[in-house]
Amino acid sequence: MSIRSSGATLWANLYAIYCRELQQYFGAPLAYGVAGIFWLLGGFFFFTVLLAPGGLIGAIAAQDQAGGGGPPIDAAYEFLKLYLGLLGSLSMFILPVLSMGLYAEERKQGTLELLATSPVTNWVVALGKLLAILSLYIAIVLPLMLLEAIALSASDPPIQPGVLLLGHLGLVLMAASILSLGMFISSLTSSTVLAAIMTFALMLLLWVMDVIAQGIGGGFGEALGHLSLLRHFGDLTEGIFDAGGLVMFLSYIGLGIFLTAQSIEALRFQRS
C-alpha cells in the first residue's frame, strides 16, 4: 500500500473536503434556490436604496433643487454603507440555511462515520467545510457586486478603494463568523431544521448584542458590546478599520471551527 507523505496530507485532505463540499452544493437545488431569493431581494434593495422615491439619488436631487443647502452628500459612500448594511441583514436569513446541513446531513447519511474512520483530523474537515460554504456565499453575493460596480462607476468623485475593500471584507468576515458558529450547531444535531433555527437565534443574539449592551450599561455592558457582530460590521462598512473588530471576527471563526472539531470528537464517546 503506497500512502502519501504526511507533509502533503493536510493540504490534500483539506482540498479534498473543500472540493467535495462544493460539488455537493452546486449539485443540489438548495444553493440555487437560496441564490435566486438572495438576488431577487438584493436587486430590490439596490433599487430601493438608489432609485426608489426617497432613495439616495432622489435625496441628492432634492438637495440640489433646494439650492445645495446642508452638508454635501457623498453618494458613493452613502450608497455603499446602506447597501452593504442591507445585504448583511439579508444574509442573516440565508446563512443559517447554508450552514444547517454542514454536519447534520453527514450524521443523517452516516457519512460522518466515513470521515471519522479516515486519516483526516476533525479540524481539517471543519475548515474544509467552512471554506467551501464561504465560497458558496461569496459566489451568491458576487453577482450583486456587479450591480454595485455599475452604480459606483458613475460616482464622482470615485469612492476610495480602501472603503470599498473594508466594506466587503466586513460582509465576508461577518458571514464567515456566522457560518462557523452555524457549522458547530449543525454538528450537534441530525435535524437540519433545528440547526437552522438555533443558528438563527444565536446570530440574532450576536447581531443585537450592541443593543443589549447599551441596555445593561457600565463596564460589563461595554465589554458585551464588543461581542456585537452589528457594531464591528457597521464599522467596516463605514470604512473604519478596527483591529479589535477584526480579532473578534477571527475569534468567532476560530471558535466555531474549534467547537465543531470538539463536538465531532465527542461523538466518539457517545452511545449511538
Partner: peptide, 8 residues
C-alpha cells in the same frame, strides 16, 4: 449503513 454521498 454504507456511508455514501447520494449526490456523487
Amino acid at each position: 449503513l454504507p456511508p455514501l454521498y447520494p449526490e456523487m
